[in-house]
Amino acid sequence: MITYILRRAASGVLLILAVSVVTFLIVFSDTQRIVRSLVGERATAEQLAQRTAEMGLDRPLFQQMIDWFANAFTGDFGASWLTSEPVAQVIINRLPITLSLVICSIVVLALISAVLGTFAAVRQGGAADRIIQIGTEILSALPKFWLALMLVIVFAIQFPLFPATGYVSLQNDVIGWATAVTLPVAAVVMGELRVTSMVRGAIADELNKDYIRTLRSRGLPSREVLFKHVLRNAAEPWVSLLSMKIVGIWTGVVVIEAVFALPGIGTLATNAATRGDGPVLMGVVVATVIVIVFVYLIFDLLQAWLNPKARLT
């Protein structure tokens, strides 16, 4: 078990390094274009060269990369080319917003998929089962950002129940925070509801297992068989199915931030991309991969903990 976790962690570190290298090569491959956009179209060749030298972009790409990694290991991710703010600080300011949306979405999706999946599995073939399966399938086909826009039109413009834009920090105002994240989280969760059908399948598989019949033969009430045995055994595939949605949820949040003008990682990345802010982009990519690796690790641990075979070895 411990060796397994260590192996996953090592694989995660390797992933972070690999993605950082590739992203660096992409972002810094055409620095002339970036510098040109920074100094303006009318700048002379001398000005361009001078600015390139100032930013250290005239050195060989490989040298720049080594320097970047050497600094990154000490926690120094450079400074924004536009605002000169330290990248690490910028990321630390933005990350909690994105992360809170991602975590809320995972938790809500976990609960809804469990409830609807159980309901559909218990009534296999019935009307409720069909409605749940078709409904979740349709919602999942909608692009999440468009779902978010529709939610804004209905629940923020037509019926102003929730704010259309803006973010309130959790520490300052719990209710304000809750109303600010409701619509974004709803849009992300609705867009990933397809997982319900898979959770339903996992529960249905479990319902057909031999040991369920044996437990029933001893007179254990159906309710107890369902809640104590079926759902407990289906928990492992459930966690595994949810872990496959992490990337989709992250992507959804990054795009939806633009709809609600939430100052998270997504809007940071978009702004950095349109204005050619290389160090910030590097920071965003590295932070994203680190967070994702961590979330996967948590899901791995959760899965192992749920399985006595893995837990005891």
Partner: peptide, 20 residues
């Protein structure tokens, strides 16, 4: 596995930054 663990949108944003 590595490619599936990265949110593509972030990579595509970086690509936009580099190549327009």
């Amino acid at each position: 596995d590595a490619l599936l663990a990265i949110p593509s949108i972030i990579v595509l944003i970086a690509v936009y930054a580099a190549f327009g």
